[in-house]
Nucleic acid binder design. Structure first.
Lengths: 197, 197, 197, 197
DNA sequence: CACTAAACGAGACGGTACGTCGAGTCTTGGA
DNA sequence: TCCAAGACTCGACGTACCGTCTCGTTTAGTG
């Protein structure tokens, strides 16, 4: 996102200041208002930037939001070098659940919501946020299989869906709180599926 | 939804024809366009109805959509009278997964998306669609606990989240298809958590 | 202009207040800025009115300006009941020249200028400003032919063009001032063409 | 126009190719679209030239147009060496009327229109197009005065306005066609004012 | 023959206004 | 009191150009 051509460029180069101002403004506004209520016009005004400058570099409002989210949020994936796959997974899940509670959780939910009618942005969000986490978890599971903790004929994708699905389910449906208690109990329970029967 | 006062009323009574026309029009338009692109104006025009009539009886666009969805979609919950709790649950999950694939799945996803900024409509959707299904499943699990199929100290809400979460996860994140194969494999795997250890 | 259908109307009637506010605002702005620099957006803001309301009732910016000009400017045609056709004509020409000097002259020039790319508005201007004056002058000339002051086989349109053309010529080309001295000398000279040879 | 400094210059000299390309492109575009719809951006693109190059050498869009018009149109002033001043004037007027009909007439009208808000360009147009013609006609009239054809105490400027005014009047107001019939009848009639008597 | 300095193309920049759409409200006449 | 019609104010859309700016690249004359 936010970069388009690798070809030799001519003309005035892209302004880094503007780019930063746009992402900063977006992030600032996101704390007060929803992605839905955010407008390109509002971002441009807040950033002191022309609308065209935004349209030139991002395909949609949601794309800007995803970009702002990814560059403004510390989105480290929990990678403690434990030799216990179960514990490692629990940590990763807890880390995600924590990241998705509060302000950031609301924003992620709204990004996914916007993504329903902006598939390109949803794709971008998956690539930059979702998949890296799934990938990390997969590695842990593979490790767990090697050590014999987990069932050897596990379907990894399915396992990811069961471990992470309930978190997004609560995030988006909002029927029950997405708190630490839930994440620890849920992950412990879900882990049962992975274990050697 | 779509009804407000129980008090004694005077003056011209509400027009049933208009109400039906509005829901019909909404449903018709939903097949072509997204909830997002749907507009009160568009519904009113399609239904041959004044905008005020819609605003009078529904609090928001999404509320109309939820109403249309609930009354137009056959939303029976699978209730076969089996004495096998596991099988019963599998059936329920498969039934939901099937209901959420195709057109209707898209609409549900869009309703949940709109719900992120229309909490009232999301609440309504939960009450009318989500909770009845969870309730039905809970009953089956309670039955399963009685028969000894399932662990007796299960947290029912948690169990629901693990069983249903992955479905909504795929529905909303769209990283992988939400098909029959997934639902059957997933539900079978997830059921492991419920079983007596 | 500013009225469209004679058909039976339903729905909320047009707001007279808005219409007046739009014309007032237009006229006020015209005193400060040129027709060219005037914008629908600016008029709407000044009038405290939505842009759509303007677009609903006028086909273009220039149409609003013509409307404002015609209703705000006292555009009486000089009609003294003299029995001397020559004198009468001189008065009419002097009256027009006076009307076209100063602020109003600038506005008329700008209307005609806009009219070059807005033929509909130019037509409107001709119908409401130009033609009534030409018609009045024609009547006087016809009178003058009857009394024997003027040549009996005059081409009336041609006569109008010779009498009025020089005024608009100076107004629009701006090579020389459009003042009283010019108008009186010019009209006296031009009248020679009409006289019996 | 299109040249600014006579001072000693260093650095890369002005590109004749670019200058020509700009005027050519302007002229080409003018045949399809109005001066109003023409844009610096459009000219630059059509000419394969940077916008700055245009801004460097011309003060405004209209200035480019005037330049293109003056260098692309054969704008010879009719100068037959007749000893009959009347005939000579009729020829000159007919020549102008002919020049101002069709495409070129439209462009002149649009230049004058733009000139209402670009006084510099209007001045330029007067200096390069209007005044030379007036000057030529004045000479003829002076000749006519000498030969006794015309009134000796004629106001030359006034005479010019009466002879040429009606043509621009029709050109810009568009109430009646600007054709050969008009120009010949009108000029013959207008000449009456100049004659002795 | 390198150096200097202006002109060049390209195109990004902050703006302004465009004409359109829909939101939610208001105001008619008629049922 | 409800209803359809449709006008109202308002805010945002995505686009087109404005006139300015910053690049790297010519292209002459000067030192």
């Amino acid at each position: 996102m936010a970069d388009k051509k690798a070809t030799i460029r001519t003309g005035r180069p892209r302004s880094i200041e503007s780019q930063q101002a746009i992402l900063d403004a977006t992030w600032k506004l996101l704390k007060k208002i929803s992605v839905r209520d955010l407008s390109i016009e509002g971002i441009a005004k807040e950033a002191g930037v022309g609308k065209t400058t935004i349209y030139r570099w991002w395909p949609s409002k949601t794309a800007v939001v995803v970009d702002a989210f990814m560059t403004r949020v510390i989105t480290d994936i929990c990678f403690s070098e434990s030799d216990n796959a179960q514990e490692e997974l629990l940590k990763q899940i807890a880390s995600l659940a924590k990241a998705l509670s509060g302000e950031n959780g609301r924003i992620v939910a709204e990004i996914i919501a916007e993504g329903q009618t902006d598939k390109e942005a949803l794709q971008d969000f998956r690539d930059r946020f979702l998949f890296p986490r799934r990938e990390a978890a997969k590695q842990v599971i593979i490790q767990g299989i090697k050590t014999g903790e987990f069932n050897s004929n596990l379907d990894l994708e399915l396992a990811m869906d069961i471990l992470y699905g309930p978190i997004y389910y609560r995030l988006l449906l909002g029927h029950l709180p997405l708190n630490q208690e839930f994440s620890s109990l849920m992950s412990e329970m879900a882990l049962q599926c992975l274990k050697k029967g």
